[in-house]
Write a protein that binds this DNA or RNA. Structure first.
Lengths: 227, 227
DNA sequence: CAGTGGTCTAGACCACCCC
DNA sequence: GGGTGGTCTAGACCACTGC
């Protein structure tokens, strides 16, 4: 998709410092010519940059780059999307098993006796324990899944080998405090405030492919709404 | 804006049960005729419905209404937007004063000695304490503001009487636990996990008009990402 | 008043679903 | 193969900015 490419290109140019904060981007017509697209397509790309807090625009004036502290670094996505590439993210698989879905059967819309794949991973950021993830995936959708998949990218297993297509995510945030076990795994004190994120990963037609509960030491998650 | 009207119309039709979950909406061309718009405009409206979790679409097939548990009720917005109209929301002004900006001067980009209007409100949902808000607004932008503004809608004061235009919001979520004073105000036990939301309300050009810190007993906030 | 971004249109082409 | 949504275009008109 053209607008997506343009979005990524402009985003990288901004992050690379090609435009200083406060600078205006080129006029829309110029950018349209550079990328060889029409204005609506360019504006779709600009719109995503606005949502990310990278730029703001003023009718009759121009599109301007925000100071870096306004940038929202893809928060609320999965950890690998938040930090992919930029920081040193490692994961340690703490467990991998097939379990009866039991109570979780409801959200997956399967029977309590049907099987779910469950794995728990500790994610470290630059070596420091950063978040704990419990992920569940229905066995019937992923019959070939085994522990070796976790060595690579789970996403490319789902989208590549299995041929499924992710359609949308839903994320719920809850406040929590570390209990004894969580505190010892994440190596923080007991009773520390912590965010608990539930990620629901859907195919089209609301078929749930992945359900992940993440406890993260991230101190804040941000989001912005452009009117 | 036409796409906004269409979004609200369809949203109300869905909430009113005009379409049952799983039902398909009319074909896009039909809806275009009904509303007298072109397809891109209609699709902008549909796109917002998808983000809200109200519908999903399938290329080559149609647009379908989701079960109600997928609906995201405008979370992450201000409390009055989250519950406006639907529930009984009341607020009690606990304090109103003009204070030196001090440390907050930085985020407003003003001097530490410049004045900020500060007010604290306890919001109740159906009579139950639900969230505590501390709001700061720069005195120089709102010289006519006094406590009487809080009796009506602060938004319409800002956009109507003052003639400013909100351009975008930024929200940050942090985990917290209630301390003694917060627990007594919100009438919950001390040490309870709670979400702390920072709302930043901007005019164009990133002029900060309002900064609000909200502690809310909301058990979870949701958001969805459509690819 | 000239130039900018904001919104919308009419129509095109494609990928995909389902008969 | 007929019909659906996904994407894009070229161009129009408007509101607003800033000289």
């Amino acid at each position: 998709m053209k607008h997506e490419q343009i979005y990524h290109d402009l985003r990288h140019r901004i992050l690379d410092g090609e435009y200083a904060p406060g600078d205006g981007l080129e006029r829309e017509v110029v950018l349209c010519e550079r990328y060889g697209v029409s204005r609506p397509t360019l504006q779709k790309a600009i719109g995503r940059l606005k949502q990310d807090g990278m730029v703001h625009s003023r009718q009759g004036s121009g599109v301007f780059v925000n100071p870096a502290e306004f940038f929202l670094q893809n928060n609320f996505t999965t950890l690998s999307e938040r930090y992919g590439g930029e920081e040193h993210l490692t994961s340690e698989v703490l467990s991998f098993a097939c379990v009866p879905s039991a109570g979780l059967g409801q959200i997956f819309d399967i029977e309590p006796t049907d099987l779910l794949i469950h794995y728990r991973r500790l994610r470290r950021l630059n070596g420091i324990p950063w978040s704990l993830e419990d992920t569940y995936m229905p066995r019937n959708l992923f019959p070939t899944m085994d522990a070796s998949v976790l060595l690579g990218s789970v996403i490319s297993y789902i989208e590549g080998e299995c041929g499924y297509r992710m359609n949308h995510d839903r994320v719920e945030v809850r406040p929590a405090v570390t209990d004894t076990s969580l505190a010892s795994i994440l190596q923080v004190e007991k009773g520390r405030p912590i965010l608990r994120l539930s990620h629901y990963n859907y195919q089209v037609h609301n078929v749930l492919m992945q359900y992940t509960v993440e406890y993260t030491l991230e101190d804040s998650l941000g989001i912005s709404f452009v009117r």
